[in-house]
Design a protein around this nucleic acid. Structure first.
Lengths: 129, 129
DNA sequence: CCTTGATCCTGTAGTCACTACAGGTGGCAT
DNA sequence: ATGCCACCTGTAGTGACTACAGGATCAAGG
């Protein structure tokens, strides 16, 4: 059993973020010492790492909750996880596409810049549309 | 001169977002009618469109302010705009790289899913690291 | 003139996922 | 006892919006 500082180190999740997850109900409240300090088991740590992994992959918190809920599961939970992951993958791809659009526009602007025009092409582009 | 509703339509920026930009000092306060209603000139509209264009390209608001400040400029403002755009382009590229990493991990997970394992590979992957 | 519906106003709070801080307590070493 | 570090709760802030409440103004129609 570890105090929260140790749990943070072991899970890779910040102390304040751990408390936030608890407050939001993303993870269950841990046991407490007689003096009121949180104390985390290895299972608690594993759960926090799961949450971190999900967040690193960009899953929004509602999805993290859902995925966590599936971890006590059976065979049939796999399709639920698949669904969540597929939808999220689609979101990620949309975001990439958005960003690629931005990148492309920015690149085009930067390109015009190197042509030494009398008028700033970046500002001109931003002003013209 | 137009009321805020018309300005919103013409600029493509929501009424509440226009007020937000004004409150944050991103755009100057417009003139008012005798009864206190905001009234926007064509120059105000053009400025709002500029802000929208910058936001659509993902420039953070401090950069939008800076770019706006450059639009009254001279030749020498072009290098400043270029700097802002270059830094932002770099940020966009970093975000794309992050998302590509997520996409790749998610794709790998989905791939394992279609192999019909007894254990859910998605949850397994999330739990194992 | 009065009514009605639409538009506008200010101020406040909420969204998402954290993150920081204030003020206080507990635990351990000196 | 003192000092330092870790922990606690509660609150507020971040960035960029977005929504809502309660009230005022405006214009058109009866």
């Amino acid at each position: 059993m570890y105090p929260i500082g140790e749990a943070a180190v072991r899970s890779g999740v910040l102390i304040e973020t751990i408390r936030y997850y608890e407050r939001e109900g993303i993870v269950p409240k841990p046991d407490r010492t007689a003096s009121g300090r949180r104390t985390y088991s290895d299972v608690d740590i594993a759960r926090l790492r799961f949450v971190k992994r999900c967040r690193d992959l960009g899953f929004p918190t509602p999805d993290v909750r859902s995925l966590l809920g599936l971890t006590d599961g059976s065979q049939s939970t796999c399709s639920a996880a698949q669904q969540i992951a597929a939808r999220h993958l689609s979101d990620v791809r949309n975001k990439i596409a958005d960003l690629r659009g931005m990148e492309s526009s920015l690149e085009k602007m930067m390109e015009l810049c190197s042509q030494g025009d009398a008028v700033c092409p970046i500002l001109d582009q931003l002003l013209s549309e």
